[in-house]
Nucleic acid binder design. Sequence first.
RNA 1: GGGUCGCUAGCUCAAUUUGGCAGAGCAACGGACUCUUAAUCCGCAGGUUCGGGGUUCAAGUCCCCGGCGACCCA
Length: 495
Amino acid sequence: MTELSKSESEIYSLRKEKEAAIRDSKIDSFPTYFENTTNASEILKLHSNLTDGEKTEISTSVRGRILSIRSFGKLTFMDLKDYSGKIQLVLSQEELSTELAQYIENYDVGDLVGVSGNIMKTKKGEISIKVTDSILLSKSLRNFPEKWHGLKDKETRFRQRYLDFIVNEDAIKTIQTRFQIIKLIREFMDSKHFIEVETPTLQPKAGGAIARPFTTHHNAMSIDMFLRIAPELYLKRLIIGGFEKVYEIGKVFRNEGIDMTHSPEFTMMESYQAYTNVNGVMDMVEEMCCYVFSKLNVNSEISYLDSKADFSFPWKRISMFDLVNNKFNLNIDFDSDINSILSSLEKNFGLTYSSKTIGLLVYELFENHIEKEIIDPTFVTDYPKEVSPFARESKEKQGITERFELFAFGSELANGFSELIDPEDQEQRLKEQAIKKSDGDDEAHVEDKDYIDALEYGLPPTGGLGFGIDRFVMMLTNNESIREVIAFPHLKPES
RNA sequence: GGGUCGCUAGCUCAAUUUGGCAGAGCAACGGACUCUUAAUCCGCAGGUUCGGGGUUCAAGUCCCCGGCGACCCA
């Protein structure tokens, strides 16, 4: 137990005394099981037609946490909260046995109790339970945050997330929506006959994305291992093995900074489907989001923070080259002369770039000047080969891949492509990454002979997708920070 | 990695500008109260001002070092 301050320990010992009084009472407390007949919101829903002041003989029992107590001496009101909502309890001392009345005197805000009683409506019109019996299920020994202002301090909210969930309805609602969304994504993928799989989280090589991994060590095998930065290369091995449609929802880990949109561990849905390509993947993403929106009753007009976006389908699909050309009034094509474009950018916009290739230049211009401005959901296509080591090169446009990233509200939501299936090409691309790595780029991809071996047995033409669950949830729950959509976001220990 | 701001009672916040007894509301505790729902009224108590050092007669306040957090930038 952490050390308590003086006022905290006073409350602690006081509540310990009340707990002892409860134990000393003839009423047998702290049962391991308490049967309820219904829950708070069900009661409110079923009895809204009562008239003010009406009392019924309908008996009910519920269980939950006491959120507040308003006492009038001989009449006491309490708010009881369970998973479904809140219900008011009315306790009239004259209608309870002396023993039970004394017993309930020992209840505090925060205690978990079971109650039985009859459903009624107060004179002021609040549906309540007139308590006839109650039992303490678990005692709270700590002082709760204030009921009106609640718990605001972000650090405390995330360090003691359970308190946040008890006190802040928005917090619990966000997490509920998160898991509902994940469930809906599963439903959709299952309906499309994808099978859900699990691939290694501990990997001897951290592959499938451009990111710095967390490192660990396996003692028995005596090798360093890495937490996965993506499940990609294993999922494609499953496609090689004959699974034609697979997906995985799980954590990936990237050893990078933490900010409003980045968490070192986050949740991705990755899917791979044989015999389709980048266009099929974009279609599927749209269909999947459509399913989620309709089940969540989300309007196609989505408000997020200060902006509004039109999520009606179909979503715009536009080449990164077109976006850049429109923005800078240029006419860059995959085979343009880089030097004349660099000088034109400098002359007309005062922008100094030293990109080595057309592809890298377009990519940098897009990242620096355009990405943040994309509000309506948009599939940006034609990613340069240099930044897409696993995507298949376009047949028509040299140096450009069949790849897209989906953006909305200035943030990346998804990434997908026609998978590179040629082992020689793949080997060459990873070699280029390895050179970057040896030049000091610790995010560059490692060579992976084992994966190349697998490709040599034949990967069918395949469309792959990575879909960022956390950011999707942020947009649908109107949360600015990724921490809000993660039940237990990481914080540095205090000491 | 750089910058700005913050950390005061269990919670939400004052007091920092100009160094001069560390305060309020809610929660708790004692009392009154049978229809409240931020209940009301009376009373009482609660502090390592994030930690360490320095300046000063005097530091929550100024200076230095450290911790944690928030935001902005790269």
